[in-house]
Amino acid sequence: DLSALRVEEVQNVINAMQKILECPICLELIKEPVSTKCDHIFCKFCMLKLLNQKKGPSQCPLCKNDITKRSLQESTRFSQLVEELLKIICAFQLDTGLEYANSYNFAKKENNSPEHLKDEVSIIQSMGYRNRAKRLLQSEPENPSLQETSLSVQLSNLGTVRTLRTKQRIQPQRTSVYIELGSDSSEDTVNKATYCSVGDQELLQITPQGTRDEISLDSAKKAACEFSETDVTNTEHHQPSNNDLNTTEKRAAERHPEKYQGSSVSNLHVEPCGTNTHASSLQHENSSLLLTKDRMNVEKAEF
């Protein structure tokens, strides 16, 4: 173990290094160091905050020279020094078990990766560091076993998940096959086929009936047209017969005018059967003409 005197000496050296690497504005270890034209180094955030307070150039807090945003430059070497100082402080805390008085939040800088452990060898070769390295080497064999167990647990979990997924996939297939086998029997399929065939026959029977009705309507229309044509021909046949009657009536009127007047009046009210309204109107006109002729003949006879 380190003596108290040596611990104090190391602590004083760390404090001196820390004062050199402090920012003059925030009085902390410089984060993202930036250098000016006057070779003074500050935190990048502190300098941008200072420049944004005034429009135009501002003055350096140490030498009062003008500073602009374009004049600022990043210093990589200074950032490396800060990183190495942080590593020294971490090693000091691990070796002594004491917390550094002016320690900052170094938890963000710590890294437990194997590459980081290899890099620590180049920091300080001390008894405390050696003991700590031995402890780490002793704890390393235990870690692979834990990793193997965790991997086995994960693989077993994956296997159970896969088996569950396969079961879920197989179950719908089985149910679907069961439904297909038990849903419709052979008799049901035959009945469905016969039902479809009967429906098709009914459709075939319905369509000819409609065509037959249309044919019957067409035949009825044709018969009505033929009947009207026969009526017209009958009226045409009746007209010459009426003319013959008129000639006979004229002759009778010349011989017996008194008797014919009474008979002509009675004939006005008689309509021949089986004739249309057109034929009756023609008869009325003929009878009126005959009456006028008879009157003329009677007057001539009187004179």
Rank of each mutant, 00 (worst) to 15 (best):
L27Y: 03
E32P: 00
I25P: 00
L21F: 15
T211S: 07
D66P: 11
I30T: 11
F227L: 03
L51S: 01
T160I: 05
T207F: 07
T230G: 09
T211Y: 11
L146E: 09
G159S: 14
E226A: 05
E202A: 13
S281I: 03
N297S: 07
T277F: 11
S219N: 04
P272N: 14
V270A: 08
S183P: 02
N143Y: 09
G159Q: 06
N112E: 09
A220C: 12
Q11N: 14
F303V: 15
N105T: 07
K134E: 12
S139F: 10
V7A: 03
I123D: 03
M296C: 08
L158F: 10
M127S: 01
R169P: 15
T36V: 01
L289S: 14
L146S: 08
Q138E: 09
V13I: 02
I41S: 01
L137M: 14
I41T: 01
T248A: 01
R6T: 05
R295T: 10
Y260R: 12
E84V: 05
E83I: 02
L29M: 05
T163C: 08
T207S: 09
Q147Y: 10
I206N: 01
H40K: 00
R255T: 03
S281P: 08
E84C: 08
R162Y: 04
Q93L: 00
K222F: 07
E148K: 13
Q147V: 09
S197C: 00
A252E: 03
S280R: 04
E271A: 03
S150K: 07
V190I: 12
I20V: 07
L50Y: 15
R165P: 09
L29S: 04
R169A: 10
N276I: 08
D213V: 04
E22D: 01
Q261G: 15
D66Y: 04
E249P: 14
A107V: 08
K64P: 02
G199R: 08
V7R: 01
K259V: 10
E299Q: 05
T36K: 00
L117P: 01
T211L: 05
Q147L: 12
S281C: 04
I20N: 15
F227C: 09
N105C: 04
N143S: 11
S152H: 03
E254R: 10
L48G: 08
E84I: 04
L5N: 06
A220E: 05
S79K: 07
R165Y: 13
I124D: 09
Q11Y: 15
R132Q: 11
T68P: 05
F78W: 05
S150W: 06
